[in-house]
Structure formats: structure tokens, C-alpha cells
């Protein structure tokens, strides 16, 4: 075992410090050290997207990042999507409304990918949605309900005046 280092970063809006070993991935530190188990481990080699998080706003696989690479940076995980009063993020609510999940293990990754998409393209086409979600695998839904949920959020937010459509994070 190598010497542990202190990792300091901003996680879901809060400054966090945690001890970790150099070979620990960000996914391992989130789940095993910080006990934030919303981020899931699927393939652990960058194929399935279950561990997706936003690092400085950029969508990445947390299984393919060393935790120490995140030193001083800003991370958003699925735990940071809902408001502190428990109100779900519009994407989370839409996934429920559209039954866009069954077993749920891929859902946190899909939510982060969809958020990254809508942050960059507030009103995407269906092919843009499918392109952005191509790195997330789901064995239950057949994807169609997920795509519809994301498009629904985009259309709803586009129809609202900006002051009402402000979303957390």
C-alpha cells in the first residue's frame, strides 16, 4: 500500500477533504470512502456509463479517473441533482413520469449524461439525445422511454420563461 494523500475538491457544492491512495479511482473514493453510492460501478472500463459524473461541467467516466486527478476541481454526482429540500431535478422527475427506468442501476449515469446534454444543447434533436446517451448502457428499458423523458424536459423548459425554468446546480 502506498502513502495516502489528502484530496480536496468541491463535491455537489460543498468543499470535501478525503484521504485516498494514488491508485484509487474517483469512483472508488466516491463509493467506498465518501459512501456516496449513487454513482454506480458497471463495467469499470469506460463502456457502460453507469459511473458518469460531471467534472468541472464535463461528462466523464469516474471509473477511468484517478481520485487524485480531481484535486481542487468541482464535481457533480447524482446526489447533487435534487434540491436540498428534496425536490427532484426535472430530469429525475421526468424519468419517473415516463417510467424511464426499471432496475435503476444505469439511471444515475443517464441522468448525468442527460444533464450534460441539456446544459450544452437546451433543445436537442432526438438524434442529439441518442448520440449523447450512446455511452450509457441500459438492459431494461430499450432506451425509448429514456429518450422521451429527456426530450420532454427540454421541451418543457423551453416553453417556460427563464425565471421559472431555473434548476438547481
Amino acid at each position: 500500500m502506498r502513502k495516502k494523500s489528502v484530496l480536496e475538491f468541491t463535491l455537489n457544492g460543498e468543499t470535501r477533504a478525503v484521504l485516498c491512495e494514488p491508485q484509487q479511482t474517483l469512483l472508488e473514493v466516491l463509493r467506498d470512502e465518501l459512501r456516496l453510492t449513487g454513482t454506480k460501478e458497471g463495467c469499470s472500463n469506460g463502456n457502460c456509463g453507469a459511473c458518469n459524473v460531471l467534472l468541472d461541467g464535463v461528462l466523464v467516466n469516474s471509473c477511468l479517473i484517478l481520485a487524485l486527478e480531481v484535486q481542487g476541481r468541482t464535481l457533480l454526482t447524482v446526489e447533487g441533482l435534487a434540491r436540498s429540500d428534496g425536490t427532484l431535478h426535472p430530469l429525475q422527475q421526468a424519468f419517473l413520469d415516463h417510467a424511464a427506468l426499471q432496475c435503476g442501476i444505469c439511471t444515475p449515469g443517464f441522468l448525468l449524461s442527460a444533464k450534460a446534454l441539456l446544459d450544452e444543447h437546451p433543445l436537442p434533436t432526438e438524434s442529439q439525445v441518442r448520440f449523447w446517451l450512446a455511452g450509457n448502457l441500459c438492459r431494461c428499458t430499450g432506451y425509448d422511454k429514456i429518450v422521451r423523458a429527456v426530450l420532454d424536459v427540454a421541451r418543457t423548459q423551453a416553453a417556460q420563461p427563464p425565471s421559472v425554468s431555473a434548476t438547481p446546480v
Binding site: 469506460g46 456509463g49 458518469n52 467534472l55 464535463v58 461528462l59 466523464v60 467516466n61 477511468l64 479517473i65 449524461s113 450534460a116 446534454l117 448520440f131 449523447w132 450512446a134 455511452g135 450509457n136
Partner: peptide, 9 residues
């Protein structure tokens, strides 16, 4: 190359 999340890295 890869998907969106691979391209981010």
C-alpha cells in the same frame, strides 16, 4: 472516438 464521456477525457 468513444462516447461523449470518453471524449471529455
Amino acid at each position: 472516438i468513444g462516447g461523449v464521456q470518453i471524449q471529455g477525457r
